[in-house]
Nucleic acid binder design. Structure first.
Length: 444
RNA sequence: GUCCGGAUGGUGUAGAGGCCUAUCAUGGAGCCCUGUCGAGGCUCCGACCCGGGUUCGAAUCCCGGUCCGGGCGCCA
C-alpha cells in the first residue's frame, strides 16, 4: 500500500496537451481558499506548482460532498479526485469536478498569519511561523530561484572541470584570525565551527585536485545586526591551481552572468511572482584599483580615506553609485588591495609587496565575494602569518602542505545569500534563507 | 557593541491625557447568495508588551525592563 493514489498530478500538469478533457485525476495539496457563493462553491487547492480550482455546483453534485466542501478549513491538507473540465472561466483554464474530497489533515484556526497576500506580516512574525510563511507564493519563489542559482553554479563549474568537494565544518583552529568563531565541545577538547573552507581548499591544491568548488555552510560568531549579515551563511568557494587572480576573476564574472541567464530562462513564473525584472550583467566587469577607489571617495565625499583603510559602508555605496552611473552596471571588482588589510594568504605583488593580488567582487549595494592569488611559498606564508600577529604553530596542518610541492593557485568565496539577495532586490538577507540564524534567532 | 525608531485582537493597522466598555482591514463563528478568482451582503467574536510613577483620569506623559525594526561598526 502506498500513498501514490493521493496524487496523480500536480496542478500545473493539467494542460490540454497532457490531459484529456474529462479525465479523472487526483490532486493533493492545501486548501488555499474556499469561495462559497450559495449555489456554487469554489475550493482553491494549492500545491508546490500552483493552484487549481475545484468547482462544486449544488444542484449537480452529491449533497454531502457539497456540504463538506464549503466547510473545508483553510490550509488543511486535502486530496481531491475528480474529472478535469477545461473551462475558460476558470483560472489556469481548467477546473476539477470532484468525486471525492479527502481531508488528510485538518488545520487549526485562526492561522498564525495570512497566506493569500491580503495582509502582509512582518519578517519576525513570518520567521516565527516559517512553515506557514513558506506556503506564500513569494516565499516559495525565492527558494525556487535559489535552487536554480545553485544548480546553475554547479553546472557551470562542473563543465569547467571543477570537482565538487566537502570540507570539515568542525575544526581545531581559526582560518584567518579576526573573525569570531563559535566554540563547541568535541569530546574532551575545544573545537570550532568553521568560518571558511579556505585552508582546506588550499590543501586540496597541494593534493593535486587542480580545480575544486564547495557550496556549504560557514559560521561567524560576530554580533553584527544588519540586513545583510547572517551567523550561518552559505559560501560558494572555488580554488584553482596554476592560476592567478585575474584567471579566477574571469571565472567569477562569467559564473555570475551565466547564473543570471539560467534564472531568467528557468524561473520565469517565480520572477513574475516577485516582480523582478532581471538584467544579465555585462562581462567583463569594471575593475577599479584600490588606489582609484581612494581617489573617487576622497573627491566625492566628506569622508576622507587614508591609504590602508578598509571601505566604509558609505564609501561602498558611493563607489557602487559611481560605477552604476558611469557604466550602467551593478557589478564590479575592486583590485590590488593593500596587503596589510587582506588575509595572510593573499599573495603580495612581487614588485610592490605593499599591494596584494586580491580582489573583492562588489554589487552596487554590498560586497559579494572576495578572492586572491594565494601565497604558495611556505617561507613567505609563515612570515605573513607572523606579521598578522598570529602563531604559525597553530597552522601546522596547513603549512606542512606547502613544504612538499604546492602549486601556485588562486580562488574566491562568494556569499550565496547575498548573491540571491542582490539578484532579487530582497530587502533583508533573511528572506533568502529558509531558517536564518542571526544574533537573536536560534529557532526554528 | 553603539545610535535612532517601535511594541494595540491570530495578522496588518488607526490612535497625540477624558470623545476608547479602542478605528479600519484581514481572519474566525453563523446566515444569505449559481461563475467566484483580494467575490459580495448582514450579524457576532477577538487586542492596548511587562513593572513602577505622574494625574481626578493613561493605549497616549515619565522612569526601568523585555522584545522587534533600521543605521553604523565588522564582514561574505
Amino acid at each position: 500500500m502506498t500513498l501514490a493514489n493521493l496524487r496523480t498530478h500536480y496542478t500545473a500538469d493539467i494542460v490540454p496537451e497532457k490531459v484529456k478533457d474529462g479525465a479523472t485525476v487526483t490532486l493533493a495539496g492545501w486548501v488555499h481558499e474556499v469561495r462559497d457563493l450559495g449555489g456554487i462553491c469554489f475550493v482553491v487547492l494549492r500545491d508546490r506548482e500552483g493552484r487549481a480550482q475545484v468547482t462544486l455546483v449544488k444542484k449537480k453534485i452529491d449533497r454531502e460532498l457539497f456540504k463538506a466542501a464549503r466547510k473545508l478549513v483553510r490550509e488543511s491538507v486535502i486530496s481531491v479526485t475528480g474529472s478535469v473540465k477545461f473551462e475558460e472561466k476558470a483560472p489556469n483554464g481548467y477546473e476539477l469536478i470532484p468525486e471525492k474530497i479527502k481531508v488528510l489533515n485538518l488545520a487549526a484556526s485562526p492561522l498564525p498569519m495570512d497566506t493569500t497576500g491580503k495582509v502582509e506580516a512582518e519578517l519576525d512574525t513570518r520567521l516565527d511561523s516559517r512553515f506557514i510563511d513558506l506556503r506564500r507564493a513569494e516565499a516559495l519563489a525565492v527558494f525556487k530561484i535559489r535552487h536554480q542559482v545553485l544548480q546553475a553554479i554547479r553546472k557551470f563549474l562542473v563543465e569547467k572541470g571543477f570537482l565538487e568537494t566537502a570540507t570539515p565544518k568542525i575544526v581545531a583552529t581559526a582560518t584567518e584570525g579576526g573573525t569570531a568563531l563559535f566554540p563547541i565541545t568535541y569530546f574532551d577538547r575545544e573545537a570550532f565551527l568553521n568560518q571558511s573552507p579556505q585552508l582546506f581548499k588550499q590543501i586540496l591544491m597541494s593534493g593535486g585536485f587542480d580545480r575544486v568548488f564547495e557550496i556549504g555552510p560557514i559560521f561567524r560568531a560576530e554580533e553584527h545586526d544588519t540586513r545583510r549579515h547572517l551567523n550561518e551563511a552559505t559560501s560558494i568557494d572555488i580554488e584553482v591551481s596554476f592560476a592567478d587572480h585575474f584567471d579566477v576573476m574571469e571565472i567569477l564574472e562569467n559564473l555570475v552572468a551565466y547564473t543570471y541567464t539560467q534564472v531568467l530562462e528557468n524561473c520565469k513564473s517565480s520572477l513574475e511572482i516577485l516582480g523582478v525584472e532581471l538584467k544579465v550583467p555585462q562581462t567583463p566587469f569594471k575593475k577599479l584599483s584600490y588606489e582609484e577607489v581612494l581617489e573617487i571617495v576622497n573627491s566625492r565625499s566628506d569622508e576622507k580615506m587614508q591609504w590602508g583603510d578598509d571601505l566604509s559602508s558609505q564609501a561602498e555605496h558611493l563607489i557602487g553609485q559611481y560605477v552604476f552611473e558611469t557604466t550602467g552596471e551593478s557589478h564590479y571588482f575592486i583590485i590590488d588591495w593593500p596587503t596589510e588589510i587582506k588575509p595572510f594568504y593573499a599573495m603580495p605583488y612581487e614588485d610592490k609587496p605593499k599591494y596584494s593580488k586580491s580582489f573583492d567582487m562588489m554589487h552596487r549595494t554590498m560586497e559579494l565575494s572576495s578572492g586572491a592569488q594565494r601565497i604558495h611559498l611556505p617561507e613567505l606564508l609563515k612570515s605573513r602569518i607572523e606579521s598578522q600577529g598570529m602563531d604559525p604553530e597553530g597552522f601546522d596542518f596547513y603549512l606542512k602542505t606547502f613544504e612538499y610541492g604546492m602549486p601556485p593557485h588562486a580562488g574566491w568565496g562568494m556569499g550565496c545569500e547575498r548573491f540571491v539577495m542582490t539578484m532579487l532586490g530582497a530587502e533583508n538577507i533573511r528572506d533568502t534563507v529558509l531558517f536564518p540564524r542571526d544574533r537573536r534567532r536560534l529557532s526554528p
